[in-house]
């Protein structure tokens, strides 16, 4: 049981932290779309009989580099581009994957992870958590104003790239558990909820992590009690937190 929960909970902490900055950077929609890019990677890996998680991770990292390059090199408004590129990824990915495998890739599930997979997942989670906490000052200044960040000596392009890579890694961590469609939600929903409730940065990070962890825990336990996959139950619980927070939203 402990072994089964260790990775989902580590992933939830990473998702809560990364999500806070995604929500504050106003990339809520983009981040959902980014997670879709894992699908063609999973499809290609399955076709080549490789580990689908590695295929998903590779596709996510490539997609991330693409977004970063679009943002920094072309100065084209990225919202529309991201929407189109990643919806296309979803379409191509569905053609490459089929049947049972497609459902698993989209919504998670699909058996226990091996010991090595769990270990790699824990290392990945630790990397994401460590980066987000260490870089939080740079991320905060860069999201408030890239100009101010620059004069404060922050390499904005570098910190943005590292952040997007951390985001991609977080989505990859959740692929087996939540799938391509739902992992973006575990990143965004707890953070969006925390934004309603918190007035300061530390409070937001703590609330988002708590909600992500509680949802994951509830999803796993309720899921096995209800004979459902853990992923959809997790997101349903997170969404419940979000709607409750709307009612308690601090007035501004």
């Amino acid at each position: 049981m402990v072994r089964d929960l260790a990775l989902p909970l580590a992933m939830a902490v990473a998702a809560g932290l990364v999500g806070c900055f995604a929500v504050m950077r106003r990339m809520t929609l983009a981040s959902d779309a980014i997670s879709h890019v894992a699908l063609p990677g999973i499809g290609v890996a399955l076709a080549l009989q490789l580990n689908p998680l590695l295929g998903g991770l590779a596709a996510l990292l490539l997609g991330t580099l693409l977004i970063w390059a679009l943002e920094h090199k072309t100065r084209v408004p990225t919202e529309a581009l991201i929407g189109v590129v990643f919806s296309a990824a979803l379409a191509v990915g569905s053609m490459l994957t089929s049947g049972e495998e497609l459902i698993e890739a989209l919504f998670g599930g699909g058996g226990r992870l091996s010991g090595v997979e769990t270990l790699l997942g824990l290392i990945g989670s630790a990397l994401v958590i460590g980066f987000t906490l260490r870089a939080r000052s740079r991320l905060v200044i860069a999201l408030v104003s890239p100009d101010l960040a620059r004069t404060a000596g922050v390499d904005v392009a570098a910190v943005n790239l590292l952040y997007l890579l951390a985001f991609a890694l977080t989505v990859a961590l959740g692929l087996r558990y939540l799938g391509v469609l739902l992992m973006g939600s575990l990143v965004i929903i707890p953070a969006a909820t925390a934004k309603h409730l918190a007035t300061g940065l530390t409070a937001m990070l703590l609330i988002a992590v708590s909600i992500a962890v509680l949802s994951t825990l509830a999803g796993t336990l309720l899921g096995s009690a209800l004979h459902q996959d853990a992923g959809p139950v997790t997101i349903a619980v997170a969404a419940l937190f979000f709607f409750v927070s709307l009612a308690r939203r601090r007035s501004v």
């Binding site: 000052s137 404060a152 530390t202």
Partner: peptide, 20 residues
């Protein structure tokens, strides 16, 4: 700046202290 961005003035200044 979004009105409901949960970053306080102190958060912002502490971030500068850390970076500088």
């Amino acid at each position: 700046i979004e009105r409901d961005l949960p970053i306080t003035g102190l958060d912002f200044l502490r971030a500068k202290a850390a970076v500088a």
